[in-house]
Design a binder for these strands. Structure first.
Lengths: 163, 163
DNA sequence: GCAGAAATATTTCAATTGAAACCTTTTTTA
DNA sequence: TAAAAAAGGTTTCAATTGAAATATTTCTGC
């Protein structure tokens, strides 16, 4: 994240845990925190949150989309998307239309203002990660991919049980 | 996460992106989602969320703590902790006391019920990750650690700028 | 064709999250 | 010592998130 955020270190632990397994936990928490701080900063500077920006960019890239499709693209539940679209609509950046033959489907499309914003949009955090990653050698990227893959696979497989 | 969650696949994309950099973004999102789903499930089954559980376990491990110290341990802002402690206090699991000589400090301590719960607590998601990780060979763990390290370092360094 | 199942979207709800403003108390500085 | 700054907590606020319940529409099986 930005350096000033780095400087406001209220939450930064005194030292990183030495146990590698705990390190991973710690790094994941940092990842999530980075995302949270980023969206607040984004909202302050551009009046758009990360989730909203993701919607806008998805629409900009793929054209008008049904709400459920947006949900899949940005990987959140549809009840969450409803709220995000509500706020984007209030700002006049998108609109809900019923163009589909299937009358259950609500299609979301960018307004002119929305398109303008999407064109001059600040980078979403994904972009920041991408920019950073591209500077790394291929082996490192491969390493990160496989590592994360193992992690998420693990989380999907395990069941919730009392120890 | 658990298999039944795997089964309710509304948000699971049709296919994982092939570009390694995009894969990383995707895996991170899955990581975050896993955490979110886990806390909901936890709350449904045990009436305690992940954040609350983390507080309880921190107190159980380290004894009574000032609020600001808890914030550092679980890596969230103090305004967030206030809310979490509020809810734990309502459930009678912790209590606020003023034992410190410094009268600004509020010390949080487990009640008997809180201690009981901490002793029979379901595993926090950290534990699940740890359990899974421990089964992996050391090189893999090392790989994940370094990969995540590079990622978070990257996120800390970069600045928020319009492209 | 019709009853029941499935899909799409919304509403309501509670929890989390951090910023900002604020209060109280302590420490620093002049 | 008095004023200013810093530190610990709380309050208020808006956004995100997913579950559950609901309404509407479409699809399926008979």
């Amino acid at each position: 994240m930005s350096n000033n955020l780095q400087a406001s270190t209220q939450w930064v632990p005194v030292e990183a845990p030495p146990d590698p397994v705990k390190q991973i936990i710690y790094q994941i928490r940092r990842l999530i925190q980075a995302r949270e701080l980023y969206t607040k900063e984004l909202n302050k500077k551009y009046s758009v949150t990360a989730a909203q920006l993701n919607c806008l960019l998805a629409l900009h890239e793929s054209g008008p989309l049904p709400l459920s499709h947006i949900a899949k693209l940005i990987m959140v539940k549809s009840s969450t998307v409803t709220g995000i679209i509500d706020r984007l609509e209030q700002k006049g950046l998108v609109e809900r239309v019923r163009t589909s033959r299937d009358r259950r489907v609500i299609t979301i499309q960018l307004t002119e203002a929305g398109t303008r914003l999407a064109n001059n949009a600040p980078p979403p955090i994904q972009q920041k990660i991408m920019d950073g990653l591209k500077k790394l050698p291929k082996e490192d990227i491969e390493r990160i991919v496989t590592g994360l893959n193992m992690l998420t696979t693990m989380l999907d497989v395990q069941d919730l049980e009392v120890r």
